[in-house]
Computed example of a mutant assay.
Amino acid sequence: MTETIPGTEATQIPQQRGASLLETAVRYAEERHWDVFPGTWLEAADGEQRCSCGDPACAAPGAHPAREDWATQATGSATVARRMWQKQPAASILLPTGRTFDAIDVPETAGFLALARMERMELTLGPVTLTPDRRMRFFVLPGAAAKVPELVRKLGWVPRLLDLTALGEGAYVAAPPTRYGTRGAVQWACRPTPANRWLPDVEELVSPLAYACGRDR
């Protein structure tokens, strides 16, 4: 049985403090073999939490790359990850897609509808994140970004009309417990477990995801 969170209730996750971020980033690299890289972080300024990038209108405060060359900075080494977060303990945890996994991005309402449908179909899920901006990202095997448009068309949907995006090479996802400013933290809708170490192919999940996104329009 896949461990999911019911409805939209928040799962208890660590606060975004230096030690938990560092240890969590190391654990992702060590236990899941995911590449990780540190992003921006939140800073207190005039009684408010602002993004370290300095942009007062930042769309993802404390949850986006801090450097343009982030793709070369990403590492699967737990030792290197520990060293990077020791330099900036408050940095967000970002995971590049297109390497050990791709991610299918859908609205939260469609995501929960799809999760319920997948459980009824007894599909094997990978980890799934839930972001404070009400998006869900389903982790699947790499290569999904190239497959999704044609798979969606074969199901009878027009890709551009569905709020369903595949994140592959050149993209990234924020991992728990990264915080989006004052909006809250990224959570696991389906936690990483030994049972979902082997990710599903996007072909296994695209039908319920496309159906849910079509219903959600």
Rank of each mutant, 00 (worst) to 15 (best):
A63P: 07
P142F: 09
R183S: 07
E68S: 06
T8G: 08
D102M: 11
G98D: 03
A91D: 05
P107T: 02
P176H: 00
T100P: 04
R27Q: 13
T79I: 13
D201C: 06
E48T: 13
G54C: 12
L21H: 07
N196C: 03
T129Y: 02
G184S: 09
F101R: 07
C213K: 01
H64W: 09
L94F: 09
R183F: 11
K87H: 11
T165F: 13
L205N: 01
P192K: 00
H33N: 11
L199G: 04
A166C: 11
S52H: 06
A145R: 09
L162Y: 02
D55Y: 06
M1Y: 13
P6K: 13
P65Y: 08
G62R: 01
T11F: 03
T124D: 12
I104V: 14
L155R: 07
D105S: 13
D35W: 10
I104E: 01
L113A: 12
E204T: 14
V206S: 01
Q73S: 07
L130H: 11
G39K: 00
C53H: 04
P56F: 01
L164K: 05
T129K: 08
G214C: 02
F101S: 10
E31Q: 12
V206I: 15
D133V: 06
R135S: 06
G181H: 05
A195T: 03
A195V: 02
C58F: 04
G7W: 14
P61C: 00
A145T: 03
A175R: 04
R183Y: 10
R137L: 13
P208M: 06
A81L: 08
D35Q: 10
P96A: 11
R217S: 04
R134P: 05
G54D: 10
P38Q: 00
G98M: 04
I93F: 09
A90N: 14
G54H: 12
L164G: 02
T24P: 09
M1P: 15
A175M: 15
E43F: 02
T100L: 12
T182F: 08
Y172Q: 08
M84C: 05
L209M: 04
M118S: 10
V106H: 01
E43R: 09
P176K: 00
G18M: 13
A78R: 08
W85M: 11
V128T: 07
V186A: 02
R183K: 14
F139H: 11
R67Q: 11
A19Q: 14
T97H: 07
M84L: 15
S77Y: 05
T72E: 11
D46V: 07
Q16L: 15
V206D: 00
E150F: 10
Q15N: 14
L125Q: 04
L22G: 05
R50I: 12
V26L: 02
G18T: 10
A25Q: 02
V158W: 05
Q73G: 02
A19Y: 13
M1G: 15
P149W: 10
A189R: 08
A116T: 09
L151G: 02
R134N: 09
P194H: 00
F138Y: 15
G170I: 04
G214A: 04
A78Q: 06
A63C: 14
L115F: 07
E9Q: 08
G184N: 08
P96I: 10
R191K: 11
V140I: 07
P96W: 10
Q15D: 14
V80R: 08
H33Y: 06
R99N: 06
Q16P: 15
